[in-house]
Every structure is written in structure tokens, then in C-alpha cells.
Write a protein that binds this DNA or RNA. Structure first.
Lengths: 191, 191
DNA sequence: CAAGTATCGAGACTCCGAGTATCGATACCT
DNA sequence: AGGTATCGATACTCGGAGTCTCGATACTTG
């Protein structure tokens, strides 16, 4: 088994349920949209019972967040300079959001978080904070600048996805890079 | 409760229902959040019956869109040059989204639209298109560039609102203006 | 003033999804 | 083989979106 099996209590172990549920979540969201992707349908697509899903995640939102975390994986932070890092991060986020189901799931859970403080906390702590901290370290930028960077990149991509139902095209992603990089260039930038 | 019989427009039984419902929508969303702001609660806050709301708007999403349209009003497009127009538009959107209830309502209906093509059509046609056309005319930019501008401005502001629950602070709005304006400056810009 | 009419208010109703609870079945570890 | 925790199935509560009916009301017109 390639995964690190830490302390495993006796009893029936967890078969590869999480991976199956993640895949089923994305495909169901992709086929039916976020609202019609009910937990019951996701569970059925994964071949597990709804109660199994709720045993592993406290809410639909938490499931989606973990699913997104799995879909994004580690951020690509290896670059020659800050511009290269930022560019590769933007392309990575755009590419991942463009994968089937990811954009819908992201926009959906993001909207749910608007009126659900508990979900907002999950979203912020489990999804945004790890990438934010890694970016602060890689770019040497203060927290508020990195938060602004994330607002710009993710906000633009999600708005396009939400308004049109389609991921952003390459030419607009290029425009996004060309707009963002000068603003974050080193030197006499704004505080 | 006292039946406040104030100004009555001509026609059959038409009271100033729309305005009362719009105000009740924003205050209810502001107090309870988007998800808890049910149509029943909004109607109660407006002093009307739920059936009255559904007689005037086909869905909760359509009500929110009309409410946002009322909250934003006409775009401020009178400026000396393109930079001034874009700057005033950005500040106007930021200021309006920062008004109580508007940001929550916007982010909420936006998220609903992700998985509801009919609502997405309403949102795009009734809210985005009029402003987009006015901006194309005022800025002399092609459609895809104005759509990108809207994606940037609205996407960033909504992402901040959704992630933090608070509107964007003035210093970050200033940073947004400083990032966007050079990209749309006239001259040897990208196609 | 009276009649006509369209909207309003109240509330019951259906539909559906989130999340909970129960219990027998099962698959893994020791 | 046996112990044990998870799994599957299923029934359940709760709440909101949207529909429908009907009596009440308020406005317009003769």
C-alpha cells in the first residue's frame, strides 16, 4: 500500500472508500450540477451507503472541501523567480478548476459558505490556509498581499465559471497572468 | 399590526410592494445570511404574504436578482477618461457590495446560479448584460475585454466577501484599481 | 354609491434534500 | 476462529422552495 498506514484500530478497516467517493463526487457534480449532486446520489455513484459518507464527513460541504483538496493536490511552487512561481500557480489553479466537476464543486461550496460560518471556517482553514502559507513562504510576501493574490486568481476564475458554466479560456488566463504579475513585481510596489 | 396605507399608485390593488420586499430582502439577508433568508421570512419582514412574493417573482433567485438591480442602480459612467470611468466603476461596485445584505445576496444568488442554468440566464441577462453593454459603450472596449474586466472586479470582491464575510477594505480596493487600470490602459495592450 | 375585478393574506399542501438513528451483515486484524 | 468497528439498508425528522385555494380587500369604473 503506497499510503502511510498509521495507527489502525482493530475492526473493519477503511477500504479505498475516500478515493471512490471523491471520484463519484466530481463525476456526479459534473453531470448533474452542484445542487442536484445530492449526498445520496454521490454515495450511490460511489457504491457506498449515504450513512458511510456521513460517517466520514460531517456535512456535504466538508466532503466537497476534502474532495477539492484531493483534486488540487500540492501547489507547484518550484520556479526560478517569483514571476515564474506566480505564473505556474495561476495556470495550475485554472487548469484544475477546468477539470470536470472541480469548478462546479468549488463555486458551489464557496457559495454555500457565504451563509454558513462553520463551512466558511472549514473552507478557509482546510483549503485556503495551507496554500496561503506555502505561497507566503515561496513568494516572501506578507499575508495580506497573498490573500489579495488568492482573491484575484480564484475570484476571477470562479466568477467566469459561475457566470458562463465554462472554465476560462487560455487567452483570458494569459491576460490574467499579464495583469497580475506586474502588480506583484518586486521593487517600488505599493505597500 | 397597523396597515400602513400610504401612497398608492394608480391601478388596481397595487401598494408599494416591490420596494418593501426589496428592503426586507436585504435586511433579512443581512441579519440571517443568505441560506436562512427564506422567502417566508422575507415576506414576513416585508409585511406581505409568501404567495404575494411568488406572484411577482418566479423564484427566490429572480427576486434576489431584481433586488440587486435595485440596489446597484445605474452605473456611474461619467468620467474624464477611461481610467477615471473604470476607477469610479470599481469603487461603485465595491461600495454597493459592501452595503448591508448586498454582498451576501450577490454571493448567494451567484452560487445558486452555478447549478441552475435558468437562474444563470436570469443573472446574466438581467444583471450583467445591461452593465456590460453600457461599459462597452463607455470604454470602447470589445465584449470579451469588458467581460474580463467584470470577472476581475466582481470576482475579486465576491471572493473576499465569501471567504471572510466582510467587504474588501479600502486599501485593497485601491490595490485592485492599481492592478486593473494599467492592464486596460490604451496603447500597445494585448489583443 | 354600487358593482366589478384583480390582487392580497392566510395557510394547507407537495416535493425533495440534509442530516440522524438503528440494526443486521460483513470484512479485517490479532 | 473470534473480536470489533465499520458498512449497507432503511426509515425517520426537519425545513425550505414552490403551488394552490379561497375568503377578504381595495381599487376602478358606471
Amino acid at each position: 500500500m503506497p499510503s502511510t498506514a498509521s495507527a489502525r484500530p482493530p475492526g473493519r478497516p477503511r477500504a479505498g472508500v475516500n478515493a471512490k467517493v471523491f471520484a463519484a463526487t466530481l463525476s456526479t457534480v459534473h453531470e448533474l450540477g452542484y445542487a442536484r449532486a445530492t449526498v445520496e446520489r454521490i454515495a450511490a455513484a460511489a457504491g457506498v451507503a449515504k450513512s458511510t459518507v456521513y460517517r466520514r464527513w460531517p456535512s456535504k460541504g466538508a466532503l466537497i472541501v476534502d474532495c477539492l483538496l484531493d483534486a488540487f493536490g500540492p501547489a507547484p511552487l518550484e520556479g526560478a523567480d517569483r514571476a515564474e512561481i506566480m505564473s505556474s500557480v495561476i495556470h495550475w489553479v485554472a487548469r484544475t478548476i477546468g477539470e470536470p466537476g472541480v469548478g462546479d464543486a468549488f463555486a458551489g461550496v464557496f457559495s454555500d459558505a457565504v451563509s454558513d460560518p462553520a463551512l466558511r471556517e472549514i473552507l478557509s482553514a482546510r483549503l485556503q490556509d495551507p496554500y496561503r502559507l506555502a505561497l507566503q513562504d515561496a513568494l516572501g510576501e506578507p499575508e495580506h498581499r497573498v490573500l489579495f493574490f488568492i482573491d484575484v486568481v480564484v475570484g476571477v476564475l470562479l466568477h467566469r465559471m459561475g457566470m458562463t458554466g465554462e472554465p476560462m479560456v487560455d487567452s483570458d488566463i494569459a491576460a490574467l497572468v499579464e495583469m497580475v504579475l506586474p502588480h506583484f513585481a518586486e521593487g517600488p510596489g505599493p505597500t
